[in-house]
Design a protein around this nucleic acid. Sequence first.
DNA 1: TCACTGGTGGAATAATTGTTCTATTTTCTT
DNA 2: AAGAAAATAGAACAATTATTCCACCAGTGA
Lengths: 278, 278
Amino acid sequence: MSEIDILPRDFQSLKARIIERGPALPKRLTQVATYALEHPDEIAFGTVASIAVEADVQPSTLVRFSQAMGYQGFSELQEVFRSRLRDRILNYEERIEQLRQHALSASKSHVIFQGFTEAAEKSINALQEKLEPKKLDRAVEILSKAETIYLLGLRRSFPITTYMSYAFGKLGVRNVLIDAIGGLAQEELGFAAKRDAVLAISFTPYASETVALAQAAAARNVPIVAVTDSGFSPLASLAETWFEVAEANFEGFRSMAATLSLAMTLTVAVAEMRGRRP
Amino acid sequence: MSEIDILPRDFQSLKARIIERGPALPKRLTQVATYALEHPDEIAFGTVASIAVEADVQPSTLVRFSQAMGYQGFSELQEVFRSRLRDRILNYEERIEQLRQHALSASKSHVIFQGFTEAAEKSINALQEKLEPKKLDRAVEILSKAETIYLLGLRRSFPITTYMSYAFGKLGVRNVLIDAIGGLAQEELGFAAKRDAVLAISFTPYASETVALAQAAAARNVPIVAVTDSGFSPLASLAETWFEVAEANFEGFRSMAATLSLAMTLTVAVAEMRGRRP
DNA sequence: TCACTGGTGGAATAATTGTTCTATTTTCTT
DNA sequence: AAGAAAATAGAACAATTATTCCACCAGTGA
């Protein structure tokens, strides 16, 4: 029992310790614990006096708190809070700037590469913030109930449906990829019925064939899940549920990163829901 | 001329001022300017005494430097350096943790989504760090010299080649997408000659057909650019130049985000090089 | 060579720092 | 309800803080 416990030197483990021991501490020390977790920057930059005022405790309380966490004094604890800021990765602006500087010495193709990766990250972040879990659940529900999933996406969206078809195949989920080979798209979708479902993907300018096919399917009461880029999309009104994916672009070329992430999610989530993973 | 200049309150503008005025300053102050830009964290956290030692100047020099930048004293300047750290966005670990917490209340499909976006970001970051600009330039050179670009990637890689074929088409770059329809892959690649080029994409487990087709092309001296996931890949030895793309995976499903970014880069860079953008 | 200027190093200073100590209050136990 | 223990507030402390000041130095133009 007399084992010497290692005192946290990085913020992550100190945070864990505060959360663990905090609630069991005396009143004023709990107060400090709460404040510390809520205002880590203040602890990092402030002085004992200034923090004491902010947290509404006595300076000595801060020292006692530090000692309760295992440190000799406040300064030692503060050092850990400072390390959190020290080791941070560069912020967005700095990263961009660094890229720009690199770009000066780098080739044109490298600049293009940076542009596309930047667009990809932006798109993904935007979708992360915007995606509504409820819509996702609804889409997964519809698709996993379907006997056969028809994957409809032409032109720019075709790579996405192609990938989904590949992954669904691996996962044992019955699907039909509408590839419009031989102009037979209409026929490929011909057997789609109410017990099935269509996943339709299209972005501006909406490929007229995709829209027409989706309309035909909707007319036959086939449930439709859509992935598109705005509420004005003709697909949005046809669909049971739909996703708005705004892809950032570089030199007019839209990233497909966010759409691809969403497609992979739908694929795996549907397979899991069916409990049929081979 | 007696216009009052606004003193920088954010790091970005202070940095600009240091760069602007720095070189014109006296010797010791230039020394401080250099140190400040190279060790901003030290300025933010250190004391006048400690920084003076590190930068090998007198404490008073730091105060004089601060005044030369327009501030009343060192403390005022330090505050700007601290603001840089205060306003930083969450670091990677914190972001992950935040996602995890969200995940507790979210649905399973949302967790999957987070997994895939995380994998995508990781893959992209990894490629950003690893990609050698020289290889990129070499690949662009080979492909842009080609009369026809043959896009070879089956199974998991097929969505990528499909996208490239679409984009190349838009950009007016002659290309052939090997889609192996009707088992005619061999024939599709049959006309590839030395004046053309093959872009081959394959990841473990390397589709045997892709490897065989690439070998056949290499035997006929068609230049090959490969995208694969390790130096042990059979494609690596066949290629004039090749890219190693390590995609992070989630539940065994590899992200395609990095590969896609690289593919888009190659596409646009080749088109630019040819100067044939419509 | 000389005075003069701007720049520098280093000591002096007053304020503020983190920590310690103790009287007092609060909390718990019996 | 009374005593013991723990927790707290606040003053006291030495150490360290940023800043100021002044003697000295190097370079410049007369």
